[in-house]
Structure formats: C-alpha cells, structure tokens
Design a protein around this nucleic acid. Sequence first.
DNA 1: TATATTAATTGACACTGTCAATTGACATTG
DNA 2: CAATGTCAATTGACAGTGTCAATTAATATA
Lengths: 217, 217
Amino acid sequence: MDYMAKELTQDQIVEKRASLIAHAITILDSEGPDALTLRRLAVEAGVSRSTPYLYFKDKAALKDAMQVEGFIMLTSAYKKALEGLTHNRMRMKSLGDTYVAFALAHPELYELIFLTKSRRAPMSDKLAKVVDAYCVLTEEPMQAAWDAGELSMEPERLNKVLWVSLHGLLSLNRAGVIGGQSDFEALRADLGKILCFGFLPDEGRQELKTIYAPDLD
Amino acid sequence: MDYMAKELTQDQIVEKRASLIAHAITILDSEGPDALTLRRLAVEAGVSRSTPYLYFKDKAALKDAMQVEGFIMLTSAYKKALEGLTHNRMRMKSLGDTYVAFALAHPELYELIFLTKSRRAPMSDKLAKVVDAYCVLTEEPMQAAWDAGELSMEPERLNKVLWVSLHGLLSLNRAGVIGGQSDFEALRADLGKILCFGFLPDEGRQELKTIYAPDLD
DNA sequence: TATATTAATTGACACTGTCAATTGACATTG
DNA sequence: CAATGTCAATTGACAGTGTCAATTAATATA
C-alpha cells in the first residue's frame, strides 16, 4: 500500500472531495440510488472502505455535497447556454430548455437534488449560496423582460412560479403517473400556453376573473 | 405462539395485507423513510421477521402497495371534500385545497407516492386503475367548467397542467429550496394568478403573443 | 388416529453504514 | 542521524438490513 504526504493541503482535500463527489454522481446516474454505496464508492476510487469518512461526516453529508454539485452543474450549463444569445425571449427559452435537458440527462441526480433527505434541516450555507447564484442567473432575463413591460409579475416571484411548474412537469413525468414519452412534449406545450395566457378564455375574461380569482389583485 | 386457520380465505389475505400497509404508512409518516424497515414492520404487527414476505414479494412491492393506497386515500378525501358542494368553482377550489392539505399532512407518504422506486417499470394494472379513478374525479369539475365555456383548454389537458403545477409547488417547497413556510401561501397565490391569467400583461398581449409563443395556436 | 397441507417461524448469509483500534509514512526534534 | 510524534489511511468489528432456505406446528382430511 502506498501513502500520501503527511499533511494534506486544503487544495488536496477539496480535490479528493471533488473526485469522490464526481464518481458518486457517476454511479448514481448510471445505476440508480441503490447502487450508490459508500463501500463501493471507496473501492472504485481506489481507497479503502472508510476513507470517505475522512472527507464526509456521513452518507447524508455526501448526498448534501452531491446536491450542491448538482446546482453548480446546472448553473454552469446555464452560463454556457446563454453564451451569444442576446434576444431576451431566446435567453428565457434557452434556460428552460437547459433545465429540461439536464433533468432528462441526469434523472437520478435531478431527483436527489430536489429530495429532502435531511429531515427539516435548514439549508447549509454552501447550498444557500449556490442556490442564490443559480437564481440570480435565472432571474436575469425575466428582469429584462419586466423592465420592458412584458410581464405581469415581478421577476423574483415569476421565477419561482415557472421553476415550480417546470419541476412539477419533470417530477410527475418521471414518476410515470402523467403519461409516456410522447405526451411529455405535448404536456410541456400545454403548460407553456397556460403559463403565458392562463386557463381563462379570452372571451368573458373580466367576468370570469371575479368568479375564479376574486381575491387576486 | 398461536397459529391461524389452515387455509386463509381471500378476505383474510387482503385484510392482513391492508393492515400491514396501513401500519407501514403510519411508520413512514411519523418517522420517515429510513425508519420503515420490514423487520420493524413485522415485529410491530406482532408477526415474525419474514411473515411480510408471504404478502409482499419485496420491500419494493410493499412500497408499490403503499403508493396505490395513497391514491385511494386521496381519492376518498376528494369525495368527502366534494360532498354538498354544487358551485363549480367551489368544487375545483375544494379539490386543490384537499390535495395541498393531504400533501402537507402526509409529506412522507406524498413523497413516496410520486417517486419512481421501480426503475422504468410500467405502472401495475392496479395502480393504473386507481390513478384512472383519481383522474376521473379531478377532471369532473373542469369538464363542467369547459362545458360552460369558462376554460381555454380541454379538461383532460388542463387537469394535467394544474396537477403538475401544484405538485411542483409542494415538491420544491418540501425540498426547502423555494422558501419557508410564510412564502408558501404567497407562492401558491402567485401560481394561481399566473395559471388563471398567464404571465403576459393585459396591455400588448396580442403583440407579446407573437414573441413569447409564436408556435402556440 | 395418522397423514398431508400450508401459514408461520427460525437460521443463515451477504451486504450496509459506522466507528474504534491499528498501521505506517513523513516531519520534526534531540 | 536516530528517535519521536503526527496524522492520513487501513483493518477489525458490530449492529442492522433485505432475503430466502429449512423447519415447525396447527389443522383439514382420510
């Protein structure tokens, strides 16, 4: 057996952590959550059974780190997707497409990201920071649209509404409860239409408003 | 140890199954998924370690059964919630409230229901049937509204859109990624507004339509 | 009364997360 | 330069899990 230098630099630690996280994501995405085992992760990383415990307190801590990494991956995918796009509408569409593509390409990681394993524990500082950076990016095109008077709701609030809708679409589709592969695109189009225009028809909109949403502004 | 009659009737079997499922849901909802252990379920049911295997092929099979039971619970909650309500708008609102209340009252069960543990396995016949009955109930008020010309989309499609939106709201909120308890109601109101009226403002709606949704009808 | 049937139990195994005890390479000191 | 201390990393060990084969024992039937 070979051994490393005595005292690890901070860089070495984060590098080792990162490589463990990356490999954990590989296992998760290729074989599902049941295959993600600390022991297997260790042996495939060429280290011994309990070495991961030097870098992660827990299996839960590893998952938390994977969640953070997932947001980072999404954020950098967004940055790439926005490159060279100036038209505001295109930027918004590109973000949505990137989100969907990510969720479909990494379904297991996507599921892990949006699952609360930690029971009612508040977000870690690191996660909060990463989510913040994520939201800044997604809100930016909406802010521009808002400034141009093209939206009926403030960007920060609308951003959450759209996020929620898209996540629901992906989550229910993956659950298999909402219809097969072909339905997915149709449902996505339906969702887009409703989000743009609402489910109230153009005729009689004002009167229906008092019926369906008497308490909204 | 006491033993039962030699040959179990079909009724006895489904009763035993049902009681195991019910208790499994109790454990899940009160202590979370990690606490739901076949061995613990067995001992708390007063039977021995591997008795559950006489009623469920797998732990996964137990979870599948719990998923079916979850849909049944939701469906019967709907029926109760609709009792005595004749106004169509009230019926729709009541369904939505019931859905949200169920998800908040049984967060763990709710999560289990909408998680695909079985990797890409198609829905079982039993589940498909239950989901069908579920959808019939939720679509009914929308069908009435559609007949009255109050909707811009066919009930079956709109039902999925609204389901997706509500599920996304609950799922992201539970994930803790979307904001705390107080934000929840505000976000729900925002979502309701966007779903009713869309995110395009009333002014310039027609022109914006060509920008934001050139490919929609 | 003896036998067959079958629900239910126990024994056993491989595997998991986890941590205490141990190892061994290196940096530091006398 | 040899002895010592430090600390990353390994191994040993344990409780707990899902799962199934072998076993038990109660009852219907003959």
